[in-house]
């Protein structure tokens, strides 16, 4: 058995919310730095997801021993929206699974930090993703295996809201409910924007939570940048028996950097070197550089 990763605790015994939020801010810088250095990648899709990833890995949610990333009893986290790989790499580095220096090799030939996660090349990556729609089915397979083996681990899968347009996702949603997969949690990074436009202008399937509830899933709907709300939602879903759970996290694409937040067209577009300087100043609350 692996031991539950200890969360940073404040004096009151709960996770240190200030520390988690400052970690998420630092990892936003990592995301920007690594994609700007690479000259490609999806920083805005990573920044909408990073608070949730920090809560999972550093807020005591995932039962993960960084020195044994393939321990059979570990909790699984699958990043189905594989283009947010920089967010996953940043949090894996923060968690000590990979080195912080390795982030500089994002998308460089020979580096295991590929443009989209590759489980064969990087410890801590649970699924090779990048073709949208596949992660939830894979997560359901892990959930079945855990149940067969009597292991208590949980499987968490993060999808994008654009990704929810994929038919396979709904096949998985249907079957997970049928099999009462209560060891499976779907997190939707509901940032409202996708590659070509805002989600409501592409295929507007909202409201999402109502549809998931209609499929007999337990649903929590939260602000995906509100750290206490994220942690509460994970606590709530853990207590649910007999049903899979979804956390619909309303997020902002590019969260933390005003000029990225304001423009959905930043999808798949790194910041320039000068934009990175402006972004870091904003994230640090410093005055804008001249």
């Amino acid at each position: 058995m692996v031991t539950r990763a200890s969360a940073p605790h404040a004096s009151d015994g709960g996770p240190d919310l200030v520390l988690l939020s400052s970690t998420a801010r630092r990892l936003r810088e990592d995301i920007i730095a690594m994609t700007t250095r690479a000259g490609s990648g999806h920083p805005s899709s990573s920044m909408s997801a990073i608070d949730i990833l920090v809560a999972l890995y550093k807020g005591g949610i995932l039962n993960l021993d960084q020195s044994h990333p393939s321990a059979p009893d570990r909790d699984r986290f699958i990043l189905s929206k594989g283009h947010a790989a920089p967010a996953l790499y940043a949090v894996l580095a923060e968690h000590g699974v990979i080195s912080h220096e390795s982030l500089d090799t994002l998308r460089v030939i020979g580096s295991p930090l590929e443009g989209h996660p590759n489980m064969r090349r990087l410890a801590g990556v649970e699924a090779s993703t990048g073709s949208l729609g596949q992660g939830l089915s894979i997560g359901l397979g892990h959930a079945f295996a855990g149940r067969l083996d009597g292991r208590g681990y949980r499987t968490y899968v993060m999808c994008g809201d654009g990704e929810m347009q994929e038919g396979q996702i709904w096949e998985a949603i249907m079957s997970a409910a049928h099999f009462n997969a209560d060891n499976l949690t779907l997190i939707v990074d509901h940032n409202g924007a996708q590659q070509s436009n805002l989600l409501p202008r592409v295929i507007d399937y909202r409201p999402l939570a109502a549809k998931l509830r209609a499929f007999e899933w337990h649903v929590e709907e939260i602000d995906g940048h509100d750290m206490p709300a994220i942690l509460r939602a994970f606590d709530s879903v853990r207590a649910v028996k007999g049903r899979p759970q979804a956390i619909v996290a309303h997020t902002v694409k590019g969260k933390g950097v005003s000029f990225v937040e304001a423009d959905w067209a930043y999808h798949g577009k790194p910041l320039t070197a000068s934009e990175q300087v402006r972004a870091f100043s904003e994230l640090r609350g410093e005055p804008a550089p001249h």
Binding site: P72, Q134, S137, L140, G141, Q168, E171, A172, S175
Partner: peptide
């Protein structure tokens, strides 16, 4: 034995997850 219904994409993905967890 898991009958996942008429949904081949999902069944292959579920098989992948089962294999990744040692089945």
């Amino acid at each position: 034995f898991f009958n996942l219904g008429i949904a081949e994409s999902n069944m292959v993905g579920v098989a992948a997850g089962l294999a990744a967890s040692g089945k």
